[in-house]
Design a protein around this nucleic acid. Sequence first.
DNA 1: AATGTTTTTGAATGATCGTTCATTTATAGT
DNA 2: ACTATAAATGAACGATCATTCAAAAACATT
Lengths: 197, 197
Amino acid sequence: MPRPQNYSEAEVVHQAMHLFWNQGYTNTGMSQLLSTTGLKPGSFYNRFESKKALFIRCLEQYNESVVGERVATHLCHGEPIGAIEGFFVSAFEPLSTDQLIGCLLTNTATELGNSDTEISKTVWSGMQRIHKALSKLIQQGQQEGAIDRALDANNTALHLLSCFQGISVIGRLTRSKPKMRQLTQSALSVMQPGTIS
Amino acid sequence: MPRPQNYSEAEVVHQAMHLFWNQGYTNTGMSQLLSTTGLKPGSFYNRFESKKALFIRCLEQYNESVVGERVATHLCHGEPIGAIEGFFVSAFEPLSTDQLIGCLLTNTATELGNSDTEISKTVWSGMQRIHKALSKLIQQGQQEGAIDRALDANNTALHLLSCFQGISVIGRLTRSKPKMRQLTQSALSVMQPGTIS
DNA sequence: AATGTTTTTGAATGATCGTTCATTTATAGT
DNA sequence: ACTATAAATGAACGATCATTCAAAAACATT
């Protein structure tokens, strides 16, 4: 009976996510959001409560697809240190043009982490996802003997998460892949007492 | 002969810098800039070319006063590792209410590093200041034997700079001083083969 | 006092911000 | 065909954005 919806909601969220990823929340206007997705204002507000509500959906989608995908691909099997390296590389040297360089969570944390608690919570939950997977992998590596047992797994995972944010910042600024590669190695070196950068 | 200027240009830049530091460039509007500084539009544009021009002056001021001050205070004398720790602490546990938590350069890098090359250059020059001071201090520590001679000083300095950015991101998001403290220790641990976090 | 110079003032600019709403359109069931 | 339902459409909203400009005001010099 009703008129059918002529767009894919998932596709809209996907496209909006990439705009926000590239430009940030405030620097992405409704006009660009509408022109990119092809939606008209009425359709948009019929489906999404507001620009902010869409943004939070994009963050959730990012946590599920981008973060979730990366975690599942790199942090759930294989030799721990190599796995973590793969995780970093996937973020800073993306193979698919669909994946942008750097991290939406990093950008959002600095843009809005100071002012919007709802958004901050969503960003932090995504980061915790990474933290948990890293911590688990480190513990596993310690059991296998690949990682120094004297390290605190949670602290080390937090450190790696923080390094990830740092590389994301440097990468966004310089776009230097050599730097990002070098920084990844430095980040990993905390787990490898023998290795020197 | 001319009518005298009834405000301090340095004070205006100082106040604007703190607004940008807190809220970011895009999220700080001219109306707030004017009400905080007490300037009227005409006076503002008589003195500063544009909002962006003022922002760049704020970045330069930040590089000179905040970064320069921190570098001079913490990274130019004393025992190297303790000095670097002091540098981190000063940024994440500021004593003066005049210093905000985190780093304007970090926030600006993620907000505009992707889109504005002039701003990016100014941000990067501030970061290079930190990098150079760190590198010099590391080399000094290596000569004194306090830091492992096998480390590459430039790479290690870049790593510390990146850690600094990462802590700034995590700090802005969580405001957790224990986390920032722990992360500082983890960052320093690369230079201390014996120490374990 | 009158003059010249520069600043201050504050109203006003056009553009864009995010959002609303009345209307039209497309479908499935009667 | 007609009806009921929900979506699509696009003009329009008030608010705020950064910026401009003509007029008034304050000083040092003459």
